[in-house]
Simulated scan of single mutants.
Amino acid sequence: MDTSKHTLSTLFEQLGMASDKASIDDFIGRHSPLPREIAIQDAPFWSESQSHFLEEGLEDDSDWAEIIDELDAQLRH
């Protein structure tokens, strides 16, 4: 089991996306604000596999859940 602390950078790596700070900031800027009625995993900008990873991470309350919640909060602003 992976017990390392996950960051936005490692989450973006896991999602197969550019994970440097500028790329993450750009992504959040392009996709914010995410409407409250859309769950993060249902946002239209995710691929099917990305959406599934996010949904599974939240449903299972995995070690990814906290950083997924952080991304969710940043996308809401």
Rank of each mutant, 00 (worst) to 15 (best):
E13S: 09
L11G: 12
S19A: 13
D26N: 08
Q14R: 12
P33V: 11
D20C: 12
D25G: 12
W46D: 01
H77C: 00
F45D: 01
A65E: 14
F53P: 06
K5P: 04
S23Q: 13
K21P: 10
L34C: 05
H31V: 02
E13D: 13
S4F: 15
E37V: 11
D26C: 05
A65K: 10
F45S: 00
D26W: 06
I38Q: 12
I68Q: 02
S62K: 13
F45Q: 07
K5A: 14
R76F: 07
L34K: 11
E13M: 06
F27N: 12
S62G: 14
D42V: 02
A39I: 01
P33Y: 10
F12D: 06
I68Y: 01
I68S: 06
P35Y: 04
E13K: 12
L8S: 00
G57C: 13
D72E: 12
D42N: 10
R76L: 04
G29S: 15
S9C: 06
R36L: 12
E13L: 00
S47E: 13
G16C: 01
R30E: 05
R36C: 02
S19I: 03
R76W: 01
L8M: 13
D61K: 12
Q41Y: 00
S4H: 11
F53D: 00
R36I: 08
A73I: 00
L58R: 10
S19G: 06
G29R: 13
A18G: 10
E55Y: 11
A73Y: 00
I38P: 06
L75R: 03
E56Q: 14
R36Q: 10
G29E: 15
H31K: 09
D26K: 04
T7R: 05
A43L: 03
D63L: 08
G57K: 10
D2G: 13
A18D: 03
D72C: 08
F27T: 09
D61F: 01
A39K: 15
I28P: 12
A18N: 06
K5N: 14
F53I: 01
S19D: 04
M17R: 06
I38E: 14
Q41T: 04
W46H: 03
W46I: 05
S47L: 15
G16S: 00
R30F: 07
E37Y: 05
L58G: 09
Q50P: 01
H6F: 14
S9W: 02
D26P: 00
I24Q: 01
G29V: 05
D25H: 05
D61M: 10
Q41S: 11
P35C: 08
P33D: 04
H31C: 14
P33H: 08
D60F: 10
L11P: 02
